[in-house]
Amino acid sequence: MIDLFAGCGGMTSGFTAAGFRPVLAVEWDLHAAATYAANFGAGHVRWADITTVTDVPEADVVIGGPPCQGFSNLGSRDVDDPRNQLWKQYLRIVREVRPAAFVIENVDRFLSSSEFGLLQAEVRPGGLLSGYHLTSGLLLAADFGVPQRRKRAFVIGSREGAIPLPTPTHPSWHGVRTVLHGLPEKPAATALPKSTVEYFGQTVPGRFTSADLHLGRNPTALSLARYQVVPPGGGRFDLPDHLLPRCWREKKTGTTDVMGRMRWDEPSLTIRTEFYKPEKGQYLHPQWEPGPSGHRVDRPITHLEAARLQTFPDDFTWCGSKIEIARQIGNAVPPVLAEAIGRHVAAHLGGTKAESACRLCV
């Protein structure tokens, strides 16, 4: 397999668990590329702009998620955003490699974009990807064993006949308790250890273990007062007027998940790149009991907790600053979801048909 726009390796983690072997990974962000190399080896990783990558090896499958901020509900929705043109580089490499199948991951808006329309045109007779059959749709990570309501668009292209999207494997969803229960409620540190490692001739912070990522913060008295009054499933509308910033006081609708608290026995909402900021989403720890003596954990989730909600295994190691690692976590495809897709694709291509239990279920 080849992983383009590989990030820290969420898709590779899942596809290797499904039996694939990576022969090339391309990632332009140094710290994400270093994290990938730390976990899967540096020999096949190219820290480079994808437009400069040539001489790609043969592969059965090409996977990847071209940058999609311009399509995102949180972005500018600008179809001319240069980040949205990088999907063409993905297609260039698919055309050169001619794998049996390719998989694209993107935000849900991708399926209604002009770029997706052009992709569909390229698989028609005479197009750049003539001979491929496309299947596309939305997958909800919680349906595949990920304790997170993360919905993303997936496109599977195949030269072996159309490959349908995988069907849900988990009609009963995992709650956040599955991965958060048992972790220390009070993190012992607020900063990463001072250590560095060299990849691609560059020195970067790392390698950090999962335990190193269980990092606390130092909230202000105002922030702490806000955290204390938000119950599980609640958010900014639970704050009394004297704790509301002016922008929230004047905005009576929308942004319902900000300053939100998770529920133990439900999946989290989407883990984004700034999960350590409760004002950005439902990122408060789920432990909260009513009453003046109720047991509460009044803090946002840690980097380790976010990585677990994304289903990264605890033996995964990380490179970069706290902000850079948070970006890697939030941008990744959950490995457990990627594994389900990888096994599904392998079965249709005549590879292993073995099913494995979701590791969160055993």
Score class of each variant (00 low, 15 high):
273 T>K: 14
212 D>M: 03
256 T>M: 11
279 E>F: 10
267 P>D: 04
275 F>P: 07
241 D>A: 14
257 D>C: 08
254 G>E: 00
226 R>I: 06
219 P>K: 02
266 E>G: 05
226 R>F: 04
204 V>E: 03
207 R>Y: 09
279 E>C: 10
251 K>H: 11
249 R>V: 08
272 R>Y: 15
268 S>H: 04
246 R>W: 06
286 P>M: 05
250 E>H: 08
217 R>Q: 12
246 R>Y: 06
244 L>T: 02
264 W>E: 05
251 K>I: 05
196 T>H: 12
206 G>L: 06
228 Q>C: 12
203 T>F: 03
245 P>A: 07
201 G>L: 15
270 T>F: 15
263 R>H: 14
196 T>A: 11
259 M>L: 15
290 P>V: 00
250 E>M: 07
224 L>F: 02
255 T>D: 09
230 V>Y: 07
220 T>M: 02
265 D>M: 12
288 W>F: 00
288 W>S: 00
221 A>T: 05
276 Y>I: 06
237 F>V: 09
229 V>A: 09
201 G>H: 13
236 R>H: 10
242 H>S: 12
264 W>S: 08
243 L>M: 05
232 P>W: 06
243 L>K: 03
265 D>I: 10
260 G>F: 01
226 R>L: 04
267 P>G: 05
200 F>S: 10
239 L>P: 10
289 E>T: 09
248 W>V: 04
243 L>T: 03
208 F>E: 04
282 Q>C: 10
292 P>D: 04
